[in-house]
């Protein structure tokens, strides 16, 4: 009676990748991880009978507004996969670790761009996943505000960014049921505050995921693909 009825998912992913100079020794690993990540999520979902009707991936490459000016933030549109998989791969492969100035980076601005993505709002079920790879703490939001390249309309502080993410009672810019945030980031400000206080967050405290075991990786993929 119900055999022709299949639940399908629209999956959107945004990959925020730290492209500052300190990432130089691991940027190639991160690129490979980013390219494998969407594939691993989708194949695990399919293996669990969660059929994907649409898959889109977007890249936010970030550095430091004060140090890197116009090269501080690269934000792409969503690539529709598998149709644009070659374009997506070309984009990821082209990323270069360079610049960055001091140790903390403008990771929160990258996260803000990701949260405000033009998410798919249609479809039976949705997954909206943001993944951050970085080896550095964050500047406070607005640290680079004096840069002429700093975006207007940016969240003024972490409290506002938290509201953009949303909570149990309030809806932000991302679907409260579909959202997942994966942090491959050090246990350092403000990543640790986000890890402790935001809902639907998975944090692997590390230098951009360095030292990630297969066991932990599988746990991350299972957590994203399963209902929570």
């Amino acid at each position: 009676m119900a055999s022709n009825y299949k639940i399908t998912y629209n999956v959107d992913m945004v990959f925020c990748i730290d492209c500052t100079g300190s990432m130089d020794n691991i940027i190639d690993i991160v690129k490979n991880n980013a390219l494998n990540f969407y594939h691993d999520v989708t194949s695990v979902m399919e293996s669990k009978n969660k059929h994907i009707s649409q898959l889109r991936v977007r890249v936010v490459a970030f550095r430091d507004y004060l140090a890197d000016a116009e090269n501080a933030m690269l934000v792409t549109d969503f690539f529709k996969l598998p149709e644009q998989s070659a374009d997506f791969e070309r984009c990821v492969r082209s990323l270069v670790a360079d610049g960055g100035g001091d140790d903390p980076e403008d990771g929160l601005e990258a996260l803000a761009y990701a949260i405000k993505s033009p998410w798919e709002t249609e479809g039976m079920k949705k997954r909206q996943v943001i993944v951050v790879w970085t080896d550095a703490a964050t500047h406070k939001l607005g640290f680079g505000r004096t840069s002429p390249y700093y975006p207007s309309g940016m969240a003024s502080d972490l409290n506002e960014l938290t509201a953009w993410w949303g909570g149990v009672q309030q809806t932000g810019y991302i679907d409260r049921n579909a959202k997942r945030l994966v942090l491959y980031a050090p246990d350092a400000p403000d990543w640790n505050l986000i890890s402790q206080n935001w809902d639907n967050v998975l944090h692997f405290p590390s230098q951009a995921g360095n030292g990630l075991s297969e066991l932990d990786y599988n746990q991350i993929i299972d957590t994203i693909t399963n209902t929570i």
């Binding site: 246990d187 935001w198 639907n200 967050v201 998975l202 944090h203 692997f204 405290p205 932990d216």
Partner: peptide, 9 residues
């Protein structure tokens, strides 16, 4: 063992 943190664990 395991190093994962966050509200999803």
């Amino acid at each position: 063992g395991g190093r994962l943190m966050g509200s999803l664990t």
